[in-house]
């Protein structure tokens, strides 16, 4: 255990963890978009900026990539930090004028209006802030890599190769789950899952043999079984609820008193 000082108050922290993790654990408010606990730190959105006031390298830096060391001193509300944060939020409002989640985040940190709103005319209803969470979850966690950044600079965007229907996508919806801007649309209709944002890549859903509800895409099931060894075969065709009931009905009679 090491000690770090945040806003003049001492906190305990684990060696090797990132400053943002400490801030989150201690309930100290800081905005961020590209960080996610399941993903590697990325330092792209720059919103989690803090000022390091003590230690070997003082200055302003992103807390999501700042490894804590004993005696580290940081300020989350220093005037310069707050100023940078607000300018960034203004930029994000202009980058993703269509995202309600971004507007809410900006409002929470005192930014209602963006001076840059008229600059990016192409942005229109865009909701993506290019934080890359979807790209990283698809590559790092799922090992699928159906989406990635495309192009560069102001034309930068996230999409499938050649902006077409993806043959790699398994329809797991992790991208939409981690998106902080609500920028990914997925529609389940009948026995199909349509990844609207990924050029309407369409996947077949599997029906639970017991409850008849559609619970996952066929490709997700195949993917899970290809990664995990020794999974009981009979779980391929049942939803999470039915799975529990099945296992419980096998388990309980053995242990309940007659």
């Amino acid at each position: 255990m090491i000690t770090v000082t945040i806003n003049n108050k001492k906190y305990e922290a684990n060696e090797g963890e990132y400053a943002l993790q400490v801030l989150k654990r201690e309930g100290i408010e800081i905005p961020y978009l590209c960080y996610h606990e399941a993903l590697s730190p990325y330092g792209a959105c720059r919103l989690c900026m803090v000022e390091v006031t003590g230690g070997a390298r003082p200055g302003i830096t992103t807390s999501c990539t700042l490894v804590v060391t004993d005696g580290l001193e940081i300020q989350t509300e220093a005037p310069e930090v707050v100023r940078i944060r607000k300018v960034l939020l203004e930029m994000y409002l202009a980058e993703a004028p269509g995202s309600e989640a971004i507007q809410e985040l900006a409002r929470k940190f005192g930014v209602e209006r963006s001076r840059f709103a008229d600059f990016d005319i192409e942005a229109k209803g865009d909701r993506c802030v290019l934080c890359g969470r979807c790209v990283r979850v698809c590559n790092e966690v799922l090992g699928v890599g159906a989406i990635n950044y495309a192009s560069r600079g102001t034309k930068s965007n996230i999409n499938t190769p050649w902006y077409g229907v993806s043959s790699a996508c398994i329809g797991c919806t992790a991208c939409a789950y981690v998106c902080p801007a609500g920028a990914i649309d997925i529609i389940d209709s009948g026995d199909e899952r349509i990844m609207e944002t990924w050029n309407r890549t369409t996947l077949k859903l599997k029906e639970c043999v017991e409850t008849k509800e559609f619970f996952a895409t066929e490709k997700v099931i195949d993917h899970v079984y290809s990664k995990a060894l020794d999974l009981p075969e009979d779980l391929k065709e049942v939803s999470a609820g039915s799975r529990m009931r099945r296992r419980a009905s096998e388990f309980l009679p053995k242990y309940l008193r007659k």
Binding site: N139, V144, G145, A146, I147, N148, Y149, A150, S151, R152, T160, P161, W162, S166, A168
Partner: peptide, 30 residues
């Protein structure tokens, strides 16, 4: 595109990553 699909397969790199690189560097043309 068909050639990049073969490259992705052979190198074990997601096609999306190749597309990303191909659109990032101006030296590459699709």
């Amino acid at each position: 595109q068909q050639i990049l699909e073969q490259v992705a397969q052979a190198l074990g790199v997601p096609l999306a990553q190749l597309f990303s690189m191909a659109t990032f560097y101006s030296a590459f043309s699709l």
